[in-house]
Amino acid sequence: MAETNPELLTKSFELGYTYTRSTGPVIGHFLTELREGRIVGTRTSDGRVLVPAAEYDPVSAEALTEFVSVAEEGVVTTWSWVAEPISHHLLQKPFAFALVRLDGADVPMLHMVDAGEEGAMRTGMRVRVRWAAERRGSITDIACFEPA
């Protein structure tokens, strides 16, 4: 329209809230490390390592402050196979949602596994991180996991 009538001014508009939220010292640290290509968890009072880093102990509700580095590889503890992705899914091809326990962690984290087909998935399989091409401090800096 602007091309045919130079008198009309047009501007794109996206409805959104202009809030910015701080992710704080624990989640913020986890996301910052992720941007650098490193994965960290937090250690609970009973010595377990939670990944992604959790702010509070899920049992005692104690604030957690000790960070622990964990590996990029781990084990699938459970999974579901999405044969037909819906519009919001980041992988627009059949994939798995999975809980992955990274080496050095005691608790699995939720993410996706790109295994190609359901037959390639099994509980206990080893997977490794596939990093996103561009990392910006988000859980999606891990594009997904892939069979190791």
Binding site: S80, H88, L90
Partner: peptide
């Protein structure tokens, strides 16, 4: 997908885990 919005906004929501997929994780376990 609407139910995804009740999840952790930093670690879960950006991955868009839908309610059925999460329940399926539980069933598999």
């Amino acid at each position: 997908s609407v139910l995804t919005l009740q999840l952790d906004p930093y670690y879960h929501v950006p991955l868009w885990p839908d309610a059925v997929s999460l329940a399926a994780l539980q069933a598999r376990a």
